[in-house]
Amino acid sequence: MNAYIAKLVAQRIALGLLLIFLVSIMIFLGTQILPGDVAQAILGQSATPESLANLREELGLNAPATERYFSWLTGILHGDLGTSLSNGRDIAGAISERLGNTLFLAAWAALISVPLAIILGLVSVLYRGRWPDKVISAATLSAISVPEFMMSYILMYYVAVQLGWAPSVAMLNDRMSLFEKLHAISLPVAVLVMVVLAHMMRMTRAALLNVMQSAYIETAELKGIRRSAVIWRHAFPNSIAPIVNVVMLNMAYLVVGVVVVEVVFVYPGMGQYLVDHVSKRDVPVVQACGLIFAAVYIFLNMVADIVSILANPRLRHPK
């Protein structure tokens, strides 16, 4: 690792931190702009001017917005996300369990879909325009065209109800072994894989085909090297940057975009938790979830940028 790369990577990390900071301001402002305040939301119909004033005093809502923002921010930096308004529980505790479940689901979906997408992309370039390419494209594109909830119910009906191979509701508890947990989440993982596969596979294919136009690919072919080796050894290393970018976007989607799938399979993840508390107008929980989702997005995109920097031979081996 040379100094220039270290500088670029450090810059990218600093930018990521700055972005999270800006997003925290936006989330805070966003919830401030909403009509009414938390006190009104809690009391609802039963609000009287006195009870409102009392509750505001109790929640510290009378302090100026900047002061409240900074106390919220320092709380987050100390791992304190506040307390839920609807049930009075500590948000950090509730979220850490939920986030763990969501990441468990997302990680297994990613573990299956990313290598599968890249392999399918490589295979479709190898057989470009022939039947394997067409079958892969048709299958992945039809999978992405069906809405996720629809796909969930289809799988539930055939795989869970008719065949009885997997549970239709993805419930987890601490007494389950890893295998039992995987069995429990097999259907939601299958749906998520189908949702993200097409995008990543198409981008891998496009990035590879773009590189396959290069003169150095012709050079490799004129060396008499097998086409699969040409694609793997010469084309793939030069298409890592675009592939990583789309992979990271899809991984971010796996974390923050699984609300529908979690709700359909009654999976105890972040999405469920967020939807529950949005309906209860539980502002501190919504803020905390928003910030965590934003952080996941920013972190994964930062990783993508850093991988792209490290994959660039001009930066890795300066003159």
């Binding site: 003169a215 150095y216 050079t219 004129l222 010469h234 030069n238 031979p313």
Partner: peptide
């Protein structure tokens, strides 16, 4: 057959070596 000849019995030098070398290797 062609693959077994290319790069073995007959080889090629391209016009633009800058483009004909793989930048990542």
């Amino acid at each position: 057959t062609l693959r077994s000849l290319r790069g073995a019995e007959v080889t090629y030098v391209a016009q633009s070596a800058a483009a004909a070398f793989n930048p990542a290797k």
